[in-house]
Write a protein that binds this DNA or RNA. Sequence first.
DNA 1: GCTTGACCCGAAGTGCACTCCAGGTTGTCT
DNA 2: AGACAACCTGGAGTGCACTTCGGGTCAAGC
Lengths: 150, 150
Amino acid sequence: MAETNVEWLTPKEMATRCGISPETLRYYEQEGLLNVVARNAGNQRRYDADDVAWVEVLRCLRVTALPIRELKRFAELVRQGNDGLAGRIDLLKAHRREVLAQRRALDGALKMIAHKIDVYAQQLDSVPPVDTHGMNTTPTLRGQGVRRAL
Amino acid sequence: MAETNVEWLTPKEMATRCGISPETLRYYEQEGLLNVVARNAGNQRRYDADDVAWVEVLRCLRVTALPIRELKRFAELVRQGNDGLAGRIDLLKAHRREVLAQRRALDGALKMIAHKIDVYAQQLDSVPPVDTHGMNTTPTLRGQGVRRAL
DNA sequence: GCTTGACCCGAAGTGCACTCCAGGTTGTCT
DNA sequence: AGACAACCTGGAGTGCACTTCGGGTCAAGC
């Protein structure tokens, strides 16, 4: 295993390159996400540059929480060639909407986290009265069946 | 169930308010994420504004993929009051790093998705030669044991 | 040619985060 | 008072995405 700049990659090399374990790569293949990976004379997998490119696409979609089921659908649409083109565009556009929503959620959470860190940091160097941060430490009976307006 | 502006919320109302099912809320409570929720005389849960605030924090952390295990740790640190303050800051700072990494991944993926959509759209109104997008449709034998350099 | 590590396969197992179920109680409405 | 929804509990079940296992094959260095 001296050469690295070659025409194909072994499963292990592929795993390192793509950041996906060989087992997962086999799993993806068996789920029909990869379509026919080439083999050598001894039946061992040989991944090529196209495989790498495709797996990178899959990884992008996976890390943005596209379920395997959808990846399958996408792979199927690719297999259909031009017939699947419109479907692929639809799928990607729908997913993009999802990802944009995720990013909004992330940004909201980041704001909240930053705020909490600030508040905590201030408390840390002023050793203030205890802040329970919304967690009840002293449960009380509330609501005996009749509602009291605020 | 005419009143809505009251001092407490039933499980169902709480679920609607927080976007988390009553079952999940019970599950969180039982996992020690919520600490002692108040009950009415008939043993039914009554969530108050503090509960809402805290669950919103939990939800922020969960949607950014903080595992339940960490939420538990965080809740425990809150329970410890000032003794847990430093730990809470550490936890949130570590998580913030994670979330920032997530956002970078998201942005990378968005770029890729946008690019693919462009490429596909162009193909769509030019009906070009088939693009397999890195998926092998015609497997070939490669590598009989001897490596060929590129 | 023998060892050692990488690889093959199908099948079973794992961890996470819920989600549902059965059987019983409570609350509200008419 | 009767009907009906919402609630309670402990425990079992689900879906997802891997991950591990067992038993065998392959390949590269000494």
